[in-house]
Every structure is written in C-alpha cells, then in structure tokens.
Design a protein around this nucleic acid. Structure first.
Lengths: 187, 187
DNA sequence: AACTATATATACTGTTCTGTATATGGCATT
DNA sequence: AATGCCATATACAGAACAGTATATATAGTT
C-alpha cells in the first residue's frame, strides 16, 4: 500500500477532527500531506470516499485499541465494562483527543439517507453491541438495555469533554456507570 | 421587528437542522424564505451572525418550552427532574425533531476559539445549570454532580435518537435517570 | 540505452460560496 | 403631481470548492 495514501488518510483524519469535515477542502489536505490532488484522486474516488475511509479506519483503530486495553487488564467481563470508562478517561485526557468522529460526522451530515450518516450510525451501533456482548458475558439480564445506557453515558461524556476540555464529565460518567451496572446485576 | 427577518430566522433554523450549517448557503436560505441576500445582510451582518442568532433563539425557545411544561405539570423539584425525561421523550417523537442544535453546531465548528463553538458550549452549560438548580431545590447533596450525569444521559440519548430515529434511547435514559436520582437522594 | 507504464505536477473547468455595488421599485410626505 | 426615502431586485466580484485534462518525470524492463 502506498505511503502517500497513508499520509493522506492520516492528514485528513487530523484535519477533519480539528477543523470539521465540510470546512476542510481537498486542497488543504493535499497541501498538508505534501502531495497533489491528482494523487489523492488516484487513491480515492471522491472526497466522500475519503471521508468514509477515514471514518472506517478511525473506528477500527479505536475499537482495537479498546479491545487490546481490556484484554491486557482484566479477565472478568464485569470488570471489563467498568474499566472501559477508565480507558475513556485516559483517552479524553490525551492531547490528540478531539471527540468521537462518528458523532461529529453524523452532525455534519444529518440526512439519514446520506452514506456518511449511515456509516456513523452503524459505528455507533457497533460500539453499543461491543458493550452488550460484554454485558451478556457477564450474565446481565437486560444486557442490551444496560449497553444502551452505558453508551449514552459514554457518548454524552465524550461529547461534553469535546465541548469543554477538562469538564470532568467522564469522571461522573464513570460513577454513574458503576451505579447502573450494580443495578443491572441485582435485577 | 421585520416579518422577513423572522422568516429568515425560521427558515435558517430549519435548514441548518435538516441539512447542516456549513452545507446551507445563504442563497438557499433567501430562496426558501422568498427574499434576497441584500435583505438578509440588512438584518444580519454576516452568516456567522445569523448562525449565532439562530442558536440563541432556538435555545431560548427550548428552555422556555421545558420550563413551561415543568411549571404546568409538577410542583416538587424532584418530580420535575424526573418529568424532564418525559418531555424529552415527547420532544424526540415529534416530527420536527432534528437533534440538539448546540451539539451539532459544536461538531461543525470544533475550534474552541470559534464564536459558534463558544456559544454552543455556553448553552450546554446553561442547560446543565438548569438541572442543577432543580437538584439543589430538591436538597440533593451533590446537585452539580447529578446534573452533570443527567445531562450526559440527556445529550447522549438525544444524540442517539438523532442518529437513528425510534432507537428507544430516551426510554432507557429515563430508566437510568431514575436510578441515578434515587441514588443521589440516599447519598 | 530505448521503451513503456505509472506516478506526480501544472494548469484549468465549472460551480458554489459569502458578501457588495448598483439599479429599480413603491410609498409616504409635501 | 412631484420629491425623497427605504426596501428590494439584479448583477457582479473574488475566493474556495470538487474534480479533471494534459504534460512531465521517474522507475523498471528488455
């Protein structure tokens, strides 16, 4: 795979997150990546294709980062769910944190028929399913319900943190998650 | 106040929500509003000014809608907090629901120095403070903390519902809110 | 060393964007 | 009826946008 292709992807990822997708032109992307539009359009059919690929790669990276972290730190599924919020706390504190890509993408492309919106929605669902699987492993009755609630806390907290850095939202989300998880176990 | 000014505001509000802010040009706004750019720029100094005013008006309308609903339905602050989620459920079910404006605006303008981002952040804070005041009235110890948690659920649920209509996110947010409120009372 | 294929650079289309300068209408006041 | 004023319409400027046609360099193959 081409080195320039990777460079374009990483530059686009960064610019989309820091300046917004619609506000970032392909001219800017190729200038920062140190290449030209011709090369960009050789590797990606259109700007929309580039956006879709940026989102897809970003989501894959995030999911595997989380999965790795979890498998290295805890064995029990219940602990994993609780630790999820520890890692998120770590994530939002990192300097290159700029919110959840799929939330921002769905805001920029609000039409439900739009391909980018659809992908964002799919990724949100996948993340929720990831939590649901952990909850199911942990023998929680309403695993889907708990997963939905925790994903709301997750998305809300990251959103809050993206709006105002250092808001401490994740800390409170973590506390709330603990209460909800405890409640779900007893149910 | 001019009728056309109001018309432009309402058309812009609608278009921004359904198509996104950056994707909506002033040409489209004036065409739908049945007027011309000259008139728009008589009433608003720039597109940014229009955006800021749309956000401000939208937030005022939303806050007073909620406040009215609450004052008409319940007296006790604790009931008010819980009923908040009932009204949100009603809101997201309405056909002209298109997500929270300030969340989407902050996604389209991610730079923290940007005036639109700042306003969005301010509005998010105001809504959180509104819940915190209710919690304080209800004599809840960590009123700020609970308010933050409930606002995460609120923003997360509305975001989820905006991504996929009929997701039932608000129903589960309501349940989660009840658990968190109960927990906060006992503390 | 000549040839071919591929990648890159330059330069350009046509469109859309925000914002404005200028022209034209109607409407009140005299 | 004539005059002055304000809202609107037309037309345009200049930049940024996505995307492409054409030229040039670079690399590998014979």
């Amino acid at each position: 795979m081409s080195l320039l292709r990777e460079k374009i992807l990483s530059v686009a990822t960064n610019l989309f997150q820091t300046r917004g997708i619609n506000s970032t032109g392909v001219d800017t992307i190729v200038a920062v990546a140190g290449t030209t539009k011709m090369t960009l359009y050789k590797h990606f059919h259109s700007k929309e294709d580039l956006i879709l690929e940026v989102l897809t790669k970003g989501h894959q990276d995030f999911q595997s980062w989380i999965a790795d972290k979890l498998s290295n730190n805890s064995k029990k599924p219940l602990e994993k769910i609780q630790q999820l919020f520890d890692f998120i706390e770590e994530w939002v504190a990192s300097p290159n944190f700029h919110g959840i890509a799929f939330i921002k993408a769905s805001a920029e492309f609000p039409n439900e028929e739009n391909a980018i919106h659809k992908l964002s929605s799919e990724q949100s669902k996948e993340f929720r399913q990831f939590i649901a699987d952990l909850a199911t492993e942990a023998k929680i009755k309403d695993a889907e319900g708990l997963a939905l609630q925790l994903s709301l806390l997750f998305e809300g907290a990251v959103q809050a943190e993206q709006m105002k850095r250092g808001s401490g939202a994740v800390k409170y989300a973590k506390k709330a998650a603990k209460i909800l998880i405890d409640g779900a176990i007893k149910a």
